[in-house]
Nucleic acid binder design. Structure first.
Lengths: 333, 333
DNA sequence: GGCGCCTCTGCAATCGATTACAACGCGATT
DNA sequence: AATCGCGTTGTAATCGATTGCAGAGGCGCC
């Protein structure tokens, strides 16, 4: 009662061998009906649960997937986590989670200790040597890094940024600010490229401020924007948080949104449509992204390990969309 | 190169036994200097990493803690996850995470398969039989259930609600609405008690609407509030999300906050101070809560399993505080 | 009645680590 | 010179499951 029952206890109680118990549990059809019932009864009676460590060791797999993200407390990630976990759980897998900025050694171990047999990676800034060193099914989600030898999933950030710019162009804006993310972040870069490219096509004068996706960065950008002599009439922020920070600071400074400045965000986090004004933004289907990534990695876990791919697979793009809300309006010259 | 090196490979390369390798890795001081160096070299050369399953099996512990929460995508939890993970990682532990609403069987297994050796539980609505059946160090965080035989950590919700009410009382409000959470939720109940109790003491007429902590619930409550003939001049919502929904809907209906109605939230989520108007709320020190819970459960993991406690330990309370911002103002009669 | 086949079950090896115990080498002590 | 003791190392058992192989038994068919 005190100690956890092991398979031996169940076997003894049911009057069979441990092999039979194991089979009754994993492949019931391979065991006689009467025996199976005896075993199940014994399992119930003892409250037996398989010891994961023993099984993992023997089977050389852990039935677990690992999620790595650069910042666990980020609102954008949480819904992805939930979707991955849900999908994993449905497949009978457990989920490990870790910040991806825990240091090279720890990180290496995580993907290498046999505890996980698949990885969903949300960080494109890790050492490719480390990432490629894990010999595990892995999928890059949202962020990516061309040096990683793994398939990737996410929206087309360049095109998505284009949607935002064209929306502003259509409203008559001719000078637009882009508040970007960290210079070494692949998402920030790609969105900025999309911004610049589309701005050029649309005859929009681009202005770019650096940022880091946070509300603080947005607020800072707003203060800097306010000081400009010839202020852009619209701002496209690289994240919703940044956009909310921007708007909030603008309002505190006495400007009106979208009266004085239209603002577009990126992500469509949960608060976007309850903010005041509600935020025009680019929706990333986070739930679907998480679900697809999980499905994908689970599928890879099932298949025999693919050997080094000859050429990188093209990214799998899920659809992003512009969500028009109240934070954008016509340019008032 | 292809297959993962095992301890045997390292031993062979270093010309020692596996026992020595194991010792060199876990208790270096028990191994001769020369040998230790040879081993370390071999470890580096082979890229050896301990196989977690094998070690877990032998040591009967997994160096891992499990976080269970009723909703992984909730903004309130994410920062707690981050803090727990950080603390765990610093202690050399990995983190498993799961939604706690995955069904009795799966849930039972999670705490019983030897994969985790400590649990941080954020859900007070699970079957006590299941929870008490896990024979693992466990701490209840935020939510709780008196039927769980485990220590608990969190703020004093009753008192915290009192802070909100007294704040409104001090501003001259005499009729206050409380938008509560689910009727079966211990946090909702306790906060509601705090609300009612303090309202009575402060000569405030209480009105209570049911809710469920979400923005939608807040918005719904706002619509219902608007229809009241003698409208409360203030609302105390059981969560920040609810409060934001409430405010947002009020503004959409043409009311001003705090002009027509003051609003207090609960939690102090990240967006609270950037919302427009910024949200007066009760701060829960989520980071500290996560950190403390982790510390606590890690400590329990170290100590020999305490046998069934004679009487329930009193809850450990961390300090909640009122954060005054712009969503509350004097009652305008 | 004998043979073969099929179904069900058990024996025992195995997964890859940790660790109790014993053995060994070697200098110090008597 | 024998003994003691200490620090180091190896041998082998062990953790708790899974599974290849072989044996037992039952059944049908000739």
């Amino acid at each position: 009662m005190r100690a956890r029952p092991k398979i031996k206890d169940v076997a003894t109680l049911a009057g069979v061998s441990t092999a039979t118990v194991s089979r009754a549990l994993s492949t019931p059809e391979s065991v006689g009906l009467a025996t199976r019932e005896k075993v199940m009864e014994a399992v119930k009676a003892t409250g037996y649960r398989i010891n994961a460590a023993a099984r993992d060791l023997r089977m050389r797999r852990a039935r677990s997937i690992l999620i790595l993200a650069p910042n666990l407390s980020n609102t954008f990630f949480s819904r992805i986590f939930a979707a991955v976990q849900e999908e994993a759980s449905a497949a009978g897998l457990t989920v490990q989670i870790s910040d991806s900025r825990i240091g090279r050694e720890r990180l290496l171990s995580l993907g290498y200790d046999g505890r996980a047999d698949g990885i969903v990676l949300l960080d494109g800034s890790l050492d490719p040597e480390v990432v490629n060193g894990w010999q595990l099914p892995l999928i890059q989600l949202s962020e990516w890094n061309d040096a990683y030898d793994a398939p990737r999933l996410g929206i087309d950030n360049r095109a998505a940024a284009g949607l935002a710019v064209r929306h502003l162009a259509a409203l008559g804006h001719r000078k637009v600010l882009h508040v970007s993310g960290p210079g070494d972040n692949v998402l920030a870069l790609t969105r900025q490229q999309g911004f610049s490219g589309t701005a050029a096509e649309s005859g929009i004068a681009p202005v770019v401020f650096p940022g880091d996706f946070t509300m603080e960065a947005g607020a800072g950008a707003a203060r800097r924007w306010a000081k400009l002599s010839d202020r852009p009439t619209a701002a496209f922020c690289a994240s919703d948080e940044c956009a909310l920070g921007f708007i909030s600071e603008c309002v505190h400074m006495g400007f009106s949104v979208p009266g004085d400045v239209s603002v577009v965000g990126f992500d469509d986090i949960d608060f976007a449509d309850r903010f005041l004004p509600s935020l025009t933004t680019i929706r990333q289907p986070r739930e679907a992204m998480g679900r697809l990534a999980a499905e994908r990695v689970i599928a890879m876990m099932g298949a025999p390990a693919k050997e080094p791919r000859s050429r990188p697979a093209p990214p799998i793009h899920v659809a992003a969309a512009l969500v028009e809300r109240a934070s954008t309006g016509p340019a008032h010259t």
